[in-house]
Each structure stands twice: as structure tokens, then as C-alpha cells.
Lab assay of single mutants.
Amino acid sequence: EPREEEAEKYIKRANGDYDKAQELAKKDGNEEIAEAIKEYKKR
């Protein structure tokens, strides 16, 4: 799923820090991806 791939990219950029990844996504205006990262975190 493209959303998950995007989320993974942010998580990698944030060195595995989900909260930081979420912030990066929000900064880029990717609210949807920020949500996907939140879902990811719950797994």
C-alpha cells in the first residue's frame, strides 16, 4: 500500500522514532501519512 510505504520512509528518516516521523509528515503537510504512522505505531 502506498500510504504504508510513505509511512515507512518517514519512520526511516526519523531513525525509527515514530513520534518524530509523525511530526516530519505533518511538517510536509501529509496529515494522512501522519495518521498512517500512528496506526503503524500501534502494531
Rank of each mutant, 00 (worst) to 15 (best):
D28V: 02
K20D: 04
A21L: 00
L24C: 03
A14K: 00
I33Y: 04
E6Q: 11
N15H: 11
Y10N: 02
D28R: 01
A34H: 04
K12Q: 10
R13C: 15
E1V: 13
K38A: 11
E35C: 07
E5K: 14
E32L: 12
E6K: 06
K9T: 07
E23V: 07
K42N: 09
I11E: 02
A34D: 02
K26E: 09
K41C: 10
E35G: 05
I37W: 00
A25K: 00
K41Q: 14
K20S: 05
N30I: 03
D28G: 02
A14S: 04
G16A: 01
E4H: 14
D19C: 13
D19W: 06
K42Y: 07
I37C: 00
R13T: 08
R43A: 10
A21W: 00
L24F: 06
E8M: 13
K12I: 07
E32C: 12
A14H: 00
P2R: 15
A14T: 05
N15P: 01
A21S: 01
I37F: 01
K20Y: 12
K12A: 12
K38C: 05
D17L: 01
D19H: 06
E5C: 14
G16I: 01
D17C: 04
Y40G: 05
Y10H: 03
K20Q: 08
R43V: 09
Q22D: 03
E31N: 13
K26H: 09
A7D: 03
Q22K: 04
E8C: 15
Y18W: 06
K38W: 06
D19E: 13
E1K: 13
E32V: 08
K41M: 10
E8F: 12
D17Y: 01
R43D: 06
E8V: 11
E32H: 14
E1A: 13
L24R: 04
Y18I: 06
L24M: 13
E23R: 07
L24W: 06
D17A: 02
A21P: 01
E4Q: 12
K20I: 12
I11S: 00
D17W: 03
I11D: 01
K20C: 12
E32G: 09
N30S: 05
E8A: 08
E35V: 07
R43T: 10
A34I: 12
E8Y: 12
E1I: 13
D19Y: 06
I11F: 02
R43W: 09
E31P: 14
A34W: 06
K41W: 08
Y10A: 03
E23P: 00
D28L: 02
E35S: 07
D19V: 08
K9V: 08
I33F: 02
D17H: 03
R43Q: 10
E35Y: 06
K26Y: 11
A36T: 09
Y18H: 04
E1S: 14
K12V: 07
N30V: 05
D17T: 01
A21T: 00
A36M: 15
R3I: 15
I11L: 11
K20H: 08
A21E: 00
E32M: 10
K27T: 08
Y18V: 05
G16E: 03
R3F: 15
A14F: 03
R43N: 11
D17M: 02
K9P: 02
R3D: 12
I11W: 02
K38Q: 09
A25L: 00
A7T: 07
E23G: 05
K9D: 14
A25R: 00
E5S: 14
K26L: 15
K26I: 14
A36Q: 11
D28F: 03
P2M: 13
I11R: 02
E5T: 14
I33H: 02
E8L: 15
E39K: 07
A25G: 01
